[in-house]
Write a protein that binds this DNA or RNA. Sequence first.
DNA 1: AACTATCGCAACCGCAAAACT
DNA 2: GAGTTTTGCGGTTGCGATAGT
Length: 288
Amino acid sequence: MGRSPCCEKAHTNKGAWTKEEDQRLIDYIRAHGEGCWRSLPKAAGLLRCGKSCRLRWINYLRPDLKRGNFTDEEDELIIKLHSLLGNKWSLIAGRLPGRTDNEIKNYWNTHIKRKLLNRGLDPQTHRPLNQIHNHNNFNKYTINNNEGIIQPKNLIKPKSESSFDDDNNTSTTNNNNCSTSGMTADEEPPQNVQLHQQEQKQVHSSTHYQENLNLELSIGLAPSNSAHSRPLQQRKQPQQQKQVVDYDKSFEVKQAVCLCWQLGFGRSELCKNCTQNSNGFRRYITGL
DNA sequence: AACTATCGCAACCGCAAAACT
DNA sequence: GAGTTTTGCGGTTGCGATAGT
C-alpha cells in the first residue's frame, strides 16, 4: 500500500529557487490564493513539486514574514515555549508573529541551544545539566571537580573549537572548547560547561520557567479535539473566501489568547503585533 | 592567496494524520 | 469502513558564506 509520490519527480526542479520562480509563485498566490498545492505548480507554470512550492511560500515568500534577527524577547519566548511544548516548532511559530517553524527550528539549533547550554541547561529538558548528569547520563559524562566542568568521558577534542559568543555569555567563552556544531537533539551537551555563580543564578531562574508561567494559558494548543485538525470547509472553500471563513468559523481561535501576553510580554511589541495582525494571516486573537 | 573548517540557512525527505472517494 | 490522496510537521542534508590557519 505504498503512497504515490506527491509529484512527478522526473520533470521537477530541485534546489534553490530562482527569482523568476519566486515571482511566478507570488503572482499566482496573489491571484488565486493558496489553493491545492499539488496542482498549484502546474497552474502557476512552475516545474516544482507542490510541496516545494508550499515550503517556499510559507518559509520565504509570505508577505507577513518578519525577516531579520530575533529579539531578546523572542528568544526568551521561544525558550519558554519550547520548555512547554518541546520540538513542536509549528506551535511555537504560531506564537511568534512573522516567524516560521523552519526559521525557529534553525534558530534553535544554531543559537538557542548554545545559549541554554551556556546557562548550564539541557536544551531538551530545560533542566540543569548536572541533573542530567546525575540521572540520565552517568555513563556518558564525568565532572571535573576542580573546575566544575562536565565532559563526555570519551571526549575527543575537536580540531578547532568555537566559543560561546552569544549574547552575554562572555564569562564562559574562553578556553572552554565548546563545540556544538552538528549536534543533534539526542546528543550530548557541550564538552565543557562551566557554571559560575552568576550563571548558577540564571540556571535557577531558568529552571523555574514553568513555575513562573501562567499555565492556565492553555497555550492555544489549537482545537480541543485535535491540535492539527483542519476545518472541513477549508479545503472546499475557494481560496479568496478561505481566510474569512477561518476568521469567522474557527471557534477555538476566537477562544485563544495571546500567549505572549500570558507569558508576561503583555506590553511588548510582540503583543502589539498580535493584536494588529493585518495581512489576513491571522495567528493571534485580540480579545484581551 | 589558498586551503580548510565551521556556521547558518534554505530546501528536501519521510512520515503521520486529516481529508477525500 | 477501507483505501487513496493531500497536507503539514519535524528531522536532516546540502551548500554558500565566513572565519581561521
